[in-house]
Amino acid sequence: MSDATAIAATDPATGNARAPGDAVARADAYPHEHQFDNLAQQTDAARLGMWLFLATEVLFFGGLFGAYTAYRYVYYHAFAEASRELSVLFGTLDTAVLLTSSLTMALAVFTAQSTADSPAARRRSGRTIALLLLATAALGAGFLVLHGFEYYEDYQEHHFPGRTFFFPGAESGQVELFFIIYFCLTGLHSLHVLIGVVLLAVMAALSWKGRYYGGYHNPIEISGLYWHFVDMVWVFLFPLLYLIAPR
């Protein structure tokens, strides 16, 4: 009651001065978790925590990027030859699909952020958010299907490392090393896309009935951060794997 109506200059619980944009000062109705002073602090903590996780993800992918960088330097010519074997058309389509999915994801976050706190508005927006999230997940699934076709083509062209691998010339082993790194990098990335597709499908189900609105949209935003991160990893994989040598 006191939170929603009388806005004190300082927070009675902590004695801290309130910022103008403070969630309590804006009289938000959504209850925050008990360990936080207010919803704004809870939101900031969630963002910070997610970015901490994403920093570990940067290093998780970083190990493979490091292996790529070192061997690209040592086997410079072989990696250029190997890169030419990949299909730029597939790579461009992959990138376009993921960039589009990032837009639908950002629009879902936008819709959640700008939804007014009324039952009708929340119900209406809930469906929009859910459909945008499903579109994002569908594009992610499309990316995985595209990659499946790509892997199949690689296998048929004897580019899958192992017994069936074949590449003419003296640099066969070095080209095979490129493809080992290629399959590890794209495989790890595709696993992240798969996790994202499941995550977004769950978020779509949760948001359908208007759970998220301008006052509380944290889970949508955090899922969005994950999805955009996965997109960003691909933005670097695409040139490093497909575009290092002129066609």
Partner: peptide, 25 residues
């Protein structure tokens, strides 16, 4: 929505929709 004059119904997204679309373009 009804009682308090400073209702929380006017939520604004931090990034306008046009900026998001332009970014994608």
């Amino acid at each position: 929505m009804s009682a308090a004059p400073s209702t929380a119904s006017q939520h604004a997204a931090e990034t306008p929709r046009s900026t998001l679309v332009k970014n994608a373009v």
